[in-house]
């Protein structure tokens, strides 16, 4: 899922300072799971903004709404009336959600209330970790399901580097060395021979070089 975290209240106030009526729009998908922009967080932030504005004598009306998914037009439609009656939207979706809402309602300013961080998983209660860099050319099958592109600090495809300490990364000793994990995992599943192959440089053009990426499925187009 996409993992994000909220901006601070002073930052949010600065973002919406020119508006008197704003809609705090939550998203019921990824950011709900990572406790950043779901219905509950929208309620908390709306309360906080109302109180902060009152303390600064700013005239601010805050409406709350959470839709199922902000990155999907079918669900964005459900926010039409609420968006119409407010001056601006403070979106608590990920970066994709914010842009999807902004593209659909061109006459209203749409601001991001969250800092979208990464694609990751819930590691343990209250801890999320990045697992995928969305590089566009997945190599997980070669590394026992552990991604060196994301989890190795040096993104090495032919690791490990010479500086790891025991099973710790030299960049941050709190982190495990991804290559140690890869070695252990490949040993467990009997695929250590995969490490004998030297991997060629990765095709970085499939990543974020050259602007945004698009996937087209002709069989699904109308």
């Amino acid at each position: 899922m996409i993992v994000a975290q909220r901006k601070s209240i002073p930052d949010l106030l600065e973002i919406i300072k020119n508006h008197k009526k704003i809609l705090v729009l939550g998203c019921g998908t990824c950011v709900t799971v990572c406790l950043a922009g779901g219905q509950r967080e929208v309620g908390i932030i709306a309360s906080a903004l109302r109180m902060a504005a009152k303390l600064k004598d700013l005239p601010l009306e805050v409406e709350e709404l959470t839709i199922e998914r902000q990155c999907d037009n079918v669900f964005i439609e459900q926010a039409a009336e609420a968006i119409e009656r407010n001056d601006a939207v403070l979106s608590f979706g990920c970066g994709a959600g914010v842009q999807a809402v902004a593209e659909r309602y061109t006459s209203k300013p749409v601001y991001a209330g969250l800092d979208t961080a990464f694609i990751g998983i819930l590691e343990e209660r209250g801890v999320w970790t990045e697992k995928c860099a969305a590089c566009g050319a997945c190599v997980l099958h070669q590394y026992g399901g552990i991604c060196p592109v994301t989890r190795c600090a040096k993104h090495m495809l032919n690791g490990p580097c010479s500086s790891s300490r025991e099973d710790r990364c030299e960049v941050d000793p709190k982190r495990q060395c991804a290559w140690q994990l890869i070695y252990k995992r490949l040993k467990e599943i009997g695929q250590l021979d995969r490490l004998k192959e030297t991997k060629p440089p990765k095709n970085r053009r499939l990543g974020q070089d050259g602007g945004y990426r698009t996937i087209i499925r002709e069989d699904h187009r109308i």
């Binding site: 601070s8 209240i9 002073p10 908390i44 906080a48 109180m51 902060a52 303390l55 600064k56």
Partner: peptide, 8 residues
């Protein structure tokens, strides 16, 4: 912490 951010 949030109250402090708000100014209370």
């Amino acid at each position: 912490d949030m109250l402090e951010e708000i100014g209370m």
